[in-house]
Every structure is written in structure tokens, then in C-alpha cells.
Write a protein that binds this DNA or RNA. Structure first.
Lengths: 217, 217
DNA sequence: GTCTATACTCTGATAGAC
DNA sequence: GTCTATCAGAGTATAGAC
């Protein structure tokens, strides 16, 4: 739960900025994180075992624990890396831009993240699904203020008649739901549309038309 | 994987229609399934332990295993019960009805399920998230044909100009995404809007307006 | 830095008394 | 039908050689 003070840490799993690392250390750290992402996102926290992660990373189990203090530390590092980039698209929503273009751009960026980072999306979704016990602070203290701020921008746009009147928070939730669905529920989409079809086929055109109709003043 | 032949089963965990059960047996079975739903949906398959389920059900662990053959059997029973009702709203989409009203009714029923059965929704979502290993047959052999059939109906409506032109499959996915989001990502919504607010507050009005604009010919 | 061997805990499941 | 006691296996983590 509690975050350890960064002052005492010279352990290799907390390179908080300046900890020097050899090339091989960096490479192994990356391999571990990549393997962990694969395993955690498809099996959940408890379903992921160090054995599987080690095998996926091509390392021995004790060697894994040389780089990270333990399973939880790996997961924490994964989440920390993820959250940084996860909210970037919303940050990029420009209050000074043209409203419809900004929102459509946001949709496009979010959908692109589902295409590029489906494992990250599923890792995030799995955490939320379980009540977000390891992300509560982030959600309350980072995401919430950001959402409230952008919601205020959207509300202003609606009040000015530059987009259709809409509940800003629900609009943001809708964008999340519609775009992340293609990553999080990919297995279902695949089984329904057939394995030969790209799950994201036609999604961008659909969502663009979708939000264009929705937002037109 | 394989479903056991129903002929040989007189075990108490397979009351396939006619197995007689005392009132206490039925009550305990229900308690176990209810407790399991709670535990499986919030911790995932691997994160759920028989200990926790037993405690939640108010029974001892061995007693649990008197009613069900094992952890997997409990989970299977849970899914079987769930899937029956999960697709009912789509089944109820009437090809002979008024298109816009039918689709809005479908949205309303799905949203109502998120309100009434959030744990079931999360159980389902968790399975999909992990690649749907225990639902593949259902998705391919039951849900897919149903979706294809209803998609054909929607396509006809669009071709006749009774609703706006829209990709039927993506429309269905959109309805799933938007409605299930309120159950599956409830923790996130709660932390963003504050604990005092009902996560579903305003959702129905938002979605009704949303789809009305979207579908208007 | 990396490995083998191993300690220790948790968890699913069974035995057998009542 | 329900319980106490317990086993077998899996899983996290550590010791210590190299």
C-alpha cells in the first residue's frame, strides 16, 4: 500500500531517474516488464505466476527477483509506466481548438491506443474491474481533476452552441467505453466476426460517423 | 472443457431439471452461487479462493465441496446460469417492431441489466478480458448466430431508410460497450464522480439522447 | 548476475468422525 | 449433511554456490 521513500532506494528496481544501469540491466528490465504485461493482462494479478513471467522473459525465476523485489513490485512498475501514457490523449484535448475536431481527435487517439496497446488496455480494465485497489490514488488525485477540467471545457463548448448539448462526463465515459471496448473485448469481437477479420475493421469510420452525428450542433 | 453426459449424473451439483433436492439443499446451493458470484466477479477466477467463497456463503470449505465437485464446477454453474439471461435482451429485439423504438428499448434493457446485475456483468467481462477460454463455444455457437441474425435485421432497417445508415455489427458493439461500461468500470466512475453520486445517474437520459440522434434517419 | 536447491505459505481437495 | 484434520501441489521468495 504505502509507497516507500525514494531516498534509501538504490535497488535496481527503482531507477528513479538517475540510478545508473548497465545496458544488459536495462534490456533485462524491459524484457521482464514486457513479459509481465503479457502475463498480467491475460491472466489477472493472481493468475499471473512468476514461473510464467520468467519463462516468457527467458529468465530464471530467481533472476527475475534480482531485478524486482517481488511480484507486486513488478506489477506496480507496470502500472506506473502505463498510467503516464494512458491519460495523455485527454491531456492533449486543446481547450482553444475547434470543439468538434478536438473531440473527434480525442476519439481517434483513444482508438489508436486500443490498436497499439491492447495489453495495456486490458491490464487497466482488469484493475478497474476488480475495484481498482491499486489505482485508487491515481484515479482520485490525477484522473479525476483532469476529467473535471476537460468536462468544464466541453460544457463551455456546449453552452456556446459549438457542439450539441451533452452531459460532459457521460460524453467522456462514452468515448472511453467505445474505444477501449475494441481492446478489452477483442476476444468476443473476434469470435463473433470470425478469426479472419481484424476486430478493429471499420471501427474508426463507425466511431467518426457516430460522434459527428452526436456532436453536430 | 467437455460437457459431461447428463445421463450418469445424480450428483447434487447437476440438477439438470429433475434431480430432486430438499429445501435446505436448494437454499445452500443458492447461497454458494451467490457468494461465488461476489467473489469470482471481484477477484477473477484465480483470485477467488474456496476459503473466501465458503466464508461469504457461511459454510465450511468441505461443505462447499459437498455441493459442487470443485472450484471449476462452481464457476461453470455460475456461467451457465448467467449466459442464459445475458443475451435475452438481444433475443427480445423484435424484427417486426418499430426500428428506433426497438433499438432504444434494447439499450434500455441492457442498461437496466448493468444496474440490476453489475456482478454478473463483471464476471462476464472478466472472462472476455482473459480471452474467453471458458465461453468460446457459447460465443461462437450461440451468440454469434444471434448477433448475425439481428445485424441482418438492423441492416434491413437501414436499407429501408427507417434508421440512419450504420454498420450493424459496430452498432451492436457500441450498445454493449456503452451500457456494460457502467457496471464494469463502476469503480472508476465512482472515483471520478465522487462516492456520493450514483454511477448510473443521468446515464439513461444520456444514452437515450445519444442513440436518438445517432439513429434518426 | 545467474543458477540450483530449498524453505515456507497458500490453496484445492480428501478422509473420516459425528 | 456437516465438521476437524490433513494431504498434495502450486506459488512466492530466499540461500548460497558459481
Amino acid at each position: 500500500m504505502a509507497v516507500e521513500a525514494p531516498s534509501q532506494s538504490n535497488a535496481p528496481d527503482t531507477p528513479d531517474g538517475q540510478t545508473p544501469q548497465s545496458r544488459i540491466q536495462q534490456r533485462n528490465r524491459r524484457r521482464i516488464l514486457d513479459a509481465s504485461l503479457e502475463v498480467f493482462s491475460t491472466h489477472g494479478y493472481r493468475g499471473a505466476t512468476l514461473d510464467r513471467i520468467a519463462r516468457a522473459a527467458g529468465l530464471s525465476k530467481p533472476n527475475l527477483l534480482y531485478y524486482f523485489e517481488g511480484k507486486e513490485a513488478i506489477h506496480r512498475a507496470l502500472l506506473t509506466d502505463l498510467l503516464e501514457t494512458w491519460i495523455a490523449p485527454l491531456r492533449d484535448l486543446d481547450p482553444e481548438g475547434e470543439p468538434c475536431a478536438e473531440l473527434l481527435g480525442y476519439v481517434r487517439r483513444k482508438l489508436e491506443m486500443s490498436r497499439q496497446y491492447p495489453r495495456e488496455s486490458r491490464l487497466f480494465a482488469g484493475e478497474i474491474l476488480q475495484g481498482a485497489p491499486r489505482m485508487e490514488r491515481f484515479l482520485r488525485e490525477v484522473l479525476r481533476p483532469l476529467v473535471d477540467d476537460r468536462a468544464a471545457v466541453i460544457r463551455r463548448w456546449a453552452d456556446q452552441g459549438r457542439i450539441a448539448p451533452v452531459d460532459p462526463h457521460h460524453l467522456i465515459f462514452s468515448i472511453w467505453a467505445l474505444t477501449q471496448h475494441y481492446a478489452d473485448f477483442e476476444a468476443q469481437i473476434r469470435m463473433i466476426r470470425g478469426d479472419g477479420v481484424d476486430p478493429l475493421e471499420g471501427a474508426e469510420a463507425h466511431l467518426e460517423q457516430h460522434f459527428r452525428r452526436l456532436l453536430a450542433p
